[in-house]
Write a protein that binds this DNA or RNA. Structure first.
Lengths: 337, 337
DNA sequence: GGCATTATTGCAAGCGCGTGCAAAACGAAC
DNA sequence: GTTCGTTTTGCACGCGCTTGCAATAATGCC
């Protein structure tokens, strides 16, 4: 219960000796105000510490300026990097980011979207989970834009930004073969999201084409600990793999650490490893991991551009799907062929 | 320009055959509505896809439910962990987080706070920079709460949450001495924030008391790269330090990597290292770093609790300052004494 | 049944703002 | 000075909601 209230346009008007609409117009770009009154208003506003109430403005304009970010695993290097880029670009576009964390709740994405609706967010960007179709419909019907990042959904309406996961899997298989690897493996999590599965399928397909089989193991989340466990399982097999593609960099870090410190393997001499995401740690000299870089900046740019342009429904449905290329960052965890 | 608008309480009222106020009361906890009308309203709302407009509600109640998080270095492990915890706890408290990233702009914290004011945020939590006193005043005058985390400011009004940085410095000095270190060093960044300087001063003071001098070197940011550079500088000195306290874990990671891979040093045999923050990477077996854990959860709890309680101004000023203990996490980067 | 008490409901005002409309002010041209 | 075209300004309404107040319905008690 605030003891003292905020300053309203009314008070500014009185102090400046003009009407309330003059104040309103002063803070509305493109409205008609004389230089003189504008100056008087700005002075009064400054003196009183006035700031336009965006709640009220949003109510009138039917456009809040809020974009809702629906995120899980925020503390993860890749997610936080994407988040960082998104918030910066949104701010530059004059929007403000509302943050909904879906980590510790269930039915979470839907609930998060409802929150977005309550605050009349102009748009929502979803980095986690997949919303129910009925909710999606509700959002679109209410004029809210939707962006799905790496969620690879096929419902119409939202903008969908995805990577060439499948092709990446292929490229890394070739690299392993060139490095002389004989036994390939894919280390995946149990999450089974489309992007992860895309990498897996692409890797297997390419390897098969090159005449090699792929051992696949899936366990736990996409984090470091799961990587260790996967190493445990894979490196104790009768036929030990010597070329392992990990679905994410965190998995790769855990895998490498276990391979080196528990199994005494030397990378890349005895074991080649690749990851995906190009998190900061991948470049650390302890890992020096060959990996694919998520085009974080491009993803954010695409999303924000579409939102700013008002991404209209009457566009052809193809315009609602963007496919970006993950660049292969060559470091030292794969032998040179 | 949304083609179809949101559905309003009016429409729900008409469909349910009741008055607007009945609808409003149905969605206001503790208001007086009969079970019958409540049911009818809820049905109509469900059918129409109605959601209370929090913009309008905030306007009336003069309480938006928004808490603004002002953050820099979001993509950093420690920051993102804190952010994660804060957002989760805020959500549980029925608040919604608005996110302002101060990374790529200048005068940024002040501008961020203005943003918070525009949206009539009930409170702001500042994890980065230090706001100008005049802006702080404006916030408080407008009834907005302020929380400063690890900013160690002395202006009255905001809740200030800090750690026992100075004491931590002391504890780690003792540990180094016990491990038989002869030449101590402190690796710091140039940022010079109070928390970093507190660690430095505490370390130096304790070491001096124990009869050892401390070499201090400051360079760059608090990140991995700066840690490498610091290692470069310190490990080429005539009298090479054998016990190094790094101001943050990221510095420590960079330092260790350089020490091992460039200088061929073995940790902890030839060199003891400690860090601060207890980021996830500190527990990875490549680093296995002895460090201090930031009580992330406790920090968030304190902040949210204070906000939820309406943290009143008429409290004694002591109640506005919380000092938490950083727990020493003992791992393998310091020899056992 | 009559009456007092309480729970529910509708009315209307107002939160702070944007904006269409008409009146007023201004400026220029005759 | 008059007329006409162009800004500029104020008025008043409405955005979707909450809430005090008074009217109404429901309930209990004798």
């Amino acid at each position: 219960m605030p003891s003292k209230l905020f300053v309203s346009a009314q008070e500014v008007a009185e102090r400046a000796g003009v009407s309330r609409s003059a104040v309103s117009r002063t803070f509305t770009p493109g409205a008609s105000v004389s230089a003189d009154t504008r100056k008087r208003v700005l002075e009064a506003a400054e003196a009183l510490g006035y700031h336009v109430n965006h709640l009220a403005r949003g109510l009138m304009r039917n456009e809040s300026g809020i974009v809702c970010l629906i995120v899980s695993d925020v503390a993860t290097p890749y997610r936080s990097a994407l988040l960082r880029e998104l918030t910066i670009q949104l701010q530059n576009a004059g929007k403000v980011a509302m943050f909904v964390n879906t980590d510790r709740s269930d039915g979470s994405v839907d609930r998060a979207l409802q929150q977005a609706i309550r605050y009349r967010a102009d748009a929502s960007i979803i980095l986690s989970g997949l919303p129910d179709k009925s909710i999606t419909q509700l959002c679109l019907r209410s004029g809210q834009r939707l962006v799905l990042i790496n969620r690879d959904d096929d419902q119409p309406g939202p903008l969908k930004i995805n990577l060439d996961d499948y092709e990446s899997g292929g490229r890394i298989a070739t690299a392993f073969v060139r490095a002389g690897c004989k036994t390939l493996a894919f280390a995946n999590s149990e999450a089974g999201t489309p992007s992860l599965m895309g990498r897996e399928r692409g890797f297997i397909a390419a390897a098969t084409k090159l005449g090699l089989e792929v051992v696949v193991e899936r366990y736990g989340s996409t984090g470091y600990e799961a990587g260790r466990v996967l190493a445990q399982r894979m490196l104790t097999r009768a036929e030990r793999p010597d070329g392992v593609f990990c679905a994410t960099d965190l998995l790769a870090c855990g895998f490498m650490d276990a391979a080196r410190h528990q199994f005494g393997l030397s990378i890349p001499d005895q074991l080649c490893v690749a990851g995906f995401d190009d998190i900061e740690q991948a470049s650390w000299s302890s890992f020096n991991l060959t990996t694919f870089a998520q085009p974080v900046m491009a993803i954010a740019t695409q999303a924000v551009k579409w939102l700013a342009s008002g991404g209209h429904e009457d566009e052809p449905e193809e315009a609602h799907s963007v496919r970006l290329k993950a660049e292969l960052i060559w470091r030292g965890s794969i032998r040179k062929g």
